[in-house]
Amino acid sequence: MSVTPSRFSGLFEMHGKKLLFLTKNLIAGTQFGEQLISAQGTEYRVIDPTRSKLGAALMKGISQLGVKPGDVALYLGASYGYTPSFVSDLLGETGFVFCIDSAPRSTRDLVFLCEQRSNMAPVLADAFHPEAYASRVSGADFVYQDIAQRNQAEIFLKNCDLFLKPGGFAVLVVKARSIDVTKKPGVIFQQVRRQLGEHIAVVDYRVLDPFEKDHCLLVCKKKI
């Protein structure tokens, strides 16, 4: 079994009993009890698709993400930093990720993570009010959003407007339940897709079942 580059720049894969996606560990050791794999003198971290919706989308065969090493990313809904840590690995020493979250509790753990990782910065702020943190971040090549909010699509568009470069890619994770518990998830996903489509091109789309129930992930590209 060997670790080989995947078709996503900065992400690696390993074919054993199961397909695994991995990143090159930016620092040494495990940070979330995740599995480590050493190959050819390099330490890799395994992305658990049941803990990371990005990992789930990779397993579901997402075609592109539009992010590469050296990019600057804006991560909305960073929580304690599980998926952000893999984004940080992917971007590498020359890239950078701004991590926004509005909950002090999870951001406390995020701060410890950022203190360890030289390409991560924590920002405690409400993603619905990007003006309030515009002075704390730079523009971005890539935006990733995973927040369970009723108006998540509106928040996403606002942030893409302000921070994403023209032609840049952005990923939105949609949790159907936080938009409307009475509607079928599929109906909500189509509704969000249409709403986004008026402002930004939706280039791919995956439902995250069975890794994550009633969630979908959309990959978008900002118009030039």
Binding site: C114, M120, V123, L124, R136, S138, G139, D141
Partner: peptide, 24 residues
Amino acid sequence: PAFLQQLKQAKHFPAFREKNIALT
């Protein structure tokens, strides 16, 4: 937006990081 894109330079990253850690 254009101004923020100009700030997207490696030389600024350490300052962004340190100040955001302190402020957070």
